[in-house]
Simulated assay, not measured.
Amino acid sequence: MFRDLSRPIETGMPTYPGDPDVTLAPDATHETDSYGTSELRLGTHAGTHVDAPQHKLPDGETIDERGVGRFAFDARLVDLRPLEPREPIPPEALPDVDDFGADVDLLVIRTGWESHWGDDRYHDHPYLTAAAAERCRAAGVGIGLDTFGPDPTPSAAADTDDTGPTTATDDEPAGTPAHDVLLGDSLPIVENLCGLDGLPSRFRLYAFPLRLRDADGSPVRAVAEWRE
């Protein structure tokens, strides 16, 4: 079985605050040029993508320096639902280091936040604590998430109500500690996954990036494979 776990790349799709907007527009058309081509503009962290260590480390490994086989993962799904907006995920919510599994190299964390894609609530996803990231690092396991990333994302609005965006709280960590822990040990981070409903607990995840020279990340076509 195969399943696409990646977001469609399209004009106006959600992007992390401050990242470039995405546009996909015709360049040549069959009506005027007798053939079709399109122009695509996007950032390296648009949509479903993988981070390279250089995303956080000036001298870190770039996306094209990693062997292509390092983007094919033995994944384990951890469903943590239900979670509250901007809820910190402690290490106790993850498997013990000795229970990760010797053949697991990516932990796919399901927060349920993929259902908020396209609205401001998507900014208010749960996030990994630094201690939870350290547990992954100790096991030598990267992470995939159905969110903008493992660290808190700036809120889309300053007001809090029962249905809209939630204001960041004072006890949220400064900076990007989960990114720092994982990328500092060259562990992969795959962000903005979707289609996690009904996946088995174990599967293969392919997240091959574009071969971008000296890049800090890349959009991917994330595909799960498993046997029924």
Rank of each mutant, 00 (worst) to 15 (best):
1 M>Y: 05
5 L>Y: 07
9 I>N: 04
10 E>L: 06
11 T>I: 02
12 G>R: 09
13 M>S: 06
14 P>V: 01
16 Y>F: 15
17 P>N: 07
17 P>T: 03
21 D>F: 11
23 T>D: 07
28 A>G: 11
29 T>S: 15
31 E>D: 13
33 D>M: 09
35 Y>W: 15
37 T>D: 11
37 T>K: 11
40 L>C: 10
43 G>E: 10
43 G>S: 08
47 G>C: 12
47 G>K: 12
50 V>M: 07
51 D>R: 14
53 P>R: 13
55 H>V: 07
60 G>E: 00
61 E>R: 15
61 E>S: 12
67 G>P: 04
67 G>D: 12
68 V>D: 01
70 R>Y: 04
73 F>V: 00
74 D>V: 03
77 L>D: 00
78 V>I: 10
80 L>H: 02
80 L>D: 09
80 L>A: 04
81 R>L: 02
82 P>T: 03
83 L>K: 01
87 E>A: 07
88 P>Y: 00
91 P>Y: 00
93 A>I: 04
97 V>M: 00
100 F>W: 07
101 G>C: 07
101 G>Q: 07
107 L>D: 02
109 I>C: 07
112 G>L: 09
113 W>G: 11
117 W>Y: 15
118 G>R: 12
122 Y>F: 15
123 H>F: 14
123 H>S: 14
127 Y>M: 14
135 R>C: 13
137 R>C: 07
140 G>A: 10
152 P>K: 09
153 T>D: 05
162 D>A: 14
164 G>S: 12
166 T>L: 05
170 D>V: 08
173 P>Y: 02
175 G>F: 05
178 A>P: 09
179 H>I: 08
179 H>C: 09
182 L>F: 05
185 D>Y: 03
186 S>Q: 13
187 L>T: 12
199 L>G: 15
202 R>Y: 03
204 R>W: 05
204 R>A: 13
204 R>E: 13
206 Y>E: 15
208 F>G: 08
214 D>G: 13
215 A>H: 14
217 G>T: 13
217 G>V: 13
221 R>S: 06
221 R>T: 13
222 A>G: 00
222 A>D: 01
225 E>Q: 14
226 W>P: 07
228 E>H: 11
